[in-house]
């Protein structure tokens, strides 16, 4: 659809802080479905090893944008901006800088009565992402 950016978000569950009850596996089996979808951006989890390698979607869908999940919404400690920068630079093997967006892996409270985090932690995670974005723009801006 023209006139608005459309995206698809997929994750492996975000209702519990017990990582072992959430699903594990890469995006390989979803590639045929993703390829058929007329959306500009795939907003995907990559902040946990459960989501697999960036190359799987990166190689198949380099013509789309990537909403790079780079912070875990279910942990207290904010990610180090340097680790977010490193992950985004890994994505640069497949995407141009303007195709890469930074976002958490999922929401901080998808189920109102079962939010997976607290506001102060969520704010700190947002700041890690914006700090990382500033570094990335400095390094990769034209």
């Amino acid at each position: 659809m023209s006139g608005v950016r459309t995206g698809l978000h997929v994750c492996r569950g975000n209702w519990s802080r017990q990582e072992d009850v959430l699903l594990t596996g890469d995006y390989h089996a979803l590639l045929p479905a993703f390829e058929a979808m007329r959306v500009q951006q795939f907003v995907l989890e990559y902040a946990t090893p459960r989501a697999g390698e960036l190359s799987i979607v990166g190689e198949a869908l380099k013509d789309r944008e990537l909403g790079l999940g780079c912070v875990n919404p279910r942990t207290d400690e904010a990610e180090d901006p340097a680790s977010i920068v490193a992950r985004a630079e890994e994505a640069l093997q497949f995407y141009r800088p303007d195709q890469i967006w930074l976002n958490p892996d999922c929401g901080f409270g998808c189920f109102a009565s079962r939010c997976v985090n607290e506001e102060a932690h969520a704010v700190a995670k947002l700041r890690s992402m914006t700090t990382a974005a500033a570094i990335l723009r400095e390094r990769h801006g034209s």
Binding site: P97, E119, L126
Partner: peptide, 24 residues
């Protein structure tokens, strides 16, 4: 504001106690 590495969220935010009470 920038045309690269835009930062956004996936959608939901932690709810306050007051909001949860109101929702209930």
């Amino acid at each position: 504001r920038s045309d690269m590495f835009n930062v956004t969220q996936v959608g939901s935010w932690p709810r306050s106690r007051e909001l949860l009470r109101a929702l209930r």
